[in-house]
């Protein structure tokens, strides 16, 4: 295994073509544009319901000039009543509602999403949580479990010791409980599946690569648990009985027995080297899939992990060629 690999960026030298060719190309493309405009005008005269040939639009592109469509997210209009796209993305039509779903962008929370977040601020009866969305989410003091699972109204003394539960920088997993009118999310952790995270490693990936599913907690081979937050925040940890995957079947009546006093602890358990290595390998597999823009789910990640076992040392997976190979194998399998 080499110490370092340095490559020339792809396409960097492609532009250095024959100068004469470049001039020709320019002239060609000029006339192309004119032709296309002409064609566009023709279509306009005929009048089509939707403008774009494929579903992909760029910001400012005319989507339709018919007024029958209701304008949804990702669209805007001017005085002329035509509908334009405000983001780069694909067109979605539900009945008469026309919206454009952005290809990339910040995570937009929806009720029921299982997310991973990081506390940014402790405030009056609430925490502010960074979830990678436009605004920080809110976690109310009333929406958390108390240590020991005691069920009671939160009192003023709880308010004073909020930092003993969660403080700035702490990671937690939670569910989006409600949305405010400005799109900000309100979270809750009132289940043993949710709560403060420890015994593991955090990494952040684009939210667009996480596919919304019923379950976002995976038990992975190698004694590793994964929380794949819908917001693109990922938590890899050692599997424990009280961890995210172990707490699936706890009913509210057994909450008191199951919720230990240590649910807000900052201390990690003993984590053997083999699990640490597996966590490093999984995080590299996730990075490899992200590198090739492959959407991530449980089966793909396990395929990637198995494919990566060919490389004895997880460090080899940082190499771009190896990432390519892993992602190719995953795509071939799925």
């Amino acid at each position: 295994m080499g110490v370092i690999s340095i490559t020339v960026p792809q396409g960097a030298r492609a532009e250095v073509a024959n100068e004469e060719d470049l001039i020709y190309e320019d002239a060609d493309s000029d006339s192309d544009v004119e032709m296309r405009e002409f064609n566009d005008n023709e279509e306009e005269n005929i009048g089509g319901s939707l403008y774009v040939a494929n579903d992909l639009v760029t910001p400012g592109e005319l989507v339709t000039e018919e007024t029958v469509w209701m304008r949804g997210h990702g669209t805007y209009t001017t005085v002329n009543d035509k509908t334009y796209s405000s983001v780069a993305g694909t067109i979605t039509k539900v009945n008469k509602l026309l919206s454009v779903t952005p290809i990339r962008g910040r995570y937009s929370p929806e009720i029921g999403d299982h997310i991973v977040g990081r506390i940014t601020e402790v405030g009056q009866k609430r925490w502010k949580v960074d979830i990678g969305a436009k605004q920080d989410a809110v976690l109310m003091l009333g929406s958390i479990n108390l240590p020991g699972g005691i069920l009671r109204r939160k009192s003023e003394s709880d308010e004073l010791q909020m930092r003993q539960f969660l403080k700035e920088g702490d990671l937690l997993n939670a569910e989006v409980q409600a949305l405010f009118s400005d799109g900000a999310a309100s979270l809750h952790t009132r289940s043993l599946r949710y709560g403060k995270l420890r015994n593991g490693y955090f990494l952040s990936i684009p939210a667009s690569l996480v596919i919304r599913q019923k379950n976002h907690v995976y038990r992975l081979p190698g004694n590793v648990d994964l929380i794949l937050g819908v917001n693109g925040y990922v938590w890899l940890s050692k599997r424990t009985s009280t961890g995210p995957s172990g707490a699936d079947n706890v009913t509210i009546t057994r909450l008191e027995e199951e919720a230990g006093l240590e649910i807000y602890s900052d201390k990690n358990e003993e984590i053997p080297g083999s699990i640490r290595e597996a966590i490093a390998r999984y995080s590299n597999c996730i990075r490899a899939l992200v590198y090739k823009e492959v959407g991530i789910n449980e089966s793909r990640l396990i395929t990637a992990y198995e494919a990566s076992l060919v490389y004895e040392n997880a460090g080899e997976l940082v190499d771009n060629e190896v990432k390519d190979a892993i992602a190719a194998e995953v795509i071939a399998e799925s």
Partner: peptide, 27 residues
Amino acid sequence: SPAEISYLRNSLELPSPIRPDGRSSQQ
């Protein structure tokens, strides 16, 4: 978070350290 810091530090302090991305110490 404190838990993350201690995880990272313990992994890197091991006699044969494990870096978060699995690299060897000279890679």
